[in-house]
Write a protein that binds this DNA or RNA. Structure first.
Lengths: 146, 146
DNA sequence: ATATTTAAAGATAATTTTGTCTTTAATTAT
DNA sequence: ATAATTAAAGACAAAATTATCTTTAAATAT
């Protein structure tokens, strides 16, 4: 569904949201170990997320690291996709047609439409914070070690 | 959602199902023009689909080309994904976790589960033939020219 | 038989994605 | 001031995906 880069972005952001605050930042080393992703590659991705649309914040030096502002925690999960430039998955035609609409639908359009709608709503309605809090509650997990 | 290769595979197969039969085959030239895909690349993909699990049939020489047997037309759309080795999209964790289950769910699992279920059902229940017939009826389209 | 038509097969190349490594810059603690 | 710690930046490389081109093989029609 998503690229590796976006999967890492989603996992990392949710993890950071859960583990850190402006007062308690978290290092790329800890993050990549926790979500089981290649460290340098993940660093690049987080770097991008600190620029693009400020989903993630960072600080250098001792006690530095990554964190999410309280404002950022309230962003929809979709904003991660947007920052990764992969937001189009939630809109595009399942057969990859450039033009696929109500007036000119692909053969799967009618059936796929409600599914796409739910998928989009999921990413729009759920905030980063909401997902993170479930980890805190111990009901869900984000470790990738089998 | 799917790779370019799989998008082409889906479009091509549905198109072939609609336009051809054992008696009336269709050339790669016609196919790639109709679905707006790179010809040689599409040829490779169809070649693979004639082997993997026989979704598509072919014949060389004059009046040769690609076609679907009546049996193949009754296959679920999912069989195209399977032949393309991209069937896992219908099952895998949206965050890319290796382990994501009821007992150890990712933060999106509960909400994504019903969506994934519908998506899978769509690809399992719809046959290639059903999608093709809608094109014949003129209610849907598969051309990719904007 | 020969020429023609078509897919199959194989080689190659361009592009994108994924990943690593090294150097630099900023911040903090001593 | 200096050393230590951390992310940022940049160069590079491996792998996968997407794409093209050429040659071969099979089938048909003449």
């Amino acid at each position: 569904m998503f690229s590796k880069a976006t999967e890492y972005a989603l996992r990392a952001t949710i993890f950071i949201a859960q583990k850190s605050s402006k007062e308690n930042k978290i290092s790329i080393d800890e993050i990549s170990k926790a979500i089981d992703s290649p460290q340098s590659f993940t660093a690049k991705i987080l770097q991008a997320l600190t620029k693009e649309n400020k989903v993630i914040s960072s600080a250098r030096g001792p006690n530095g690291g990554f964190f999410l502002t309280e404002k950022a925690k309230k962003l929809p999960v979709r904003s991660i996709l947007q920052a990764m430039g992969e937001d189009d998955v939630l809109d595009k035609c399942v057969l990859g047609l450039k033009l696929c609409s109500e007036t000119q639908p692909c053969p799967m359009h009618a059936q796929y439409k409600p599914i796409k709608k739910q998928l989009k709503e999921l990413f729009v309605n759920k905030t980063i914070e909401q997902l993170a809090s479930e980890i805190k509650d111990g009901v869900v997990f984000i470790n990738n070690k089998k």
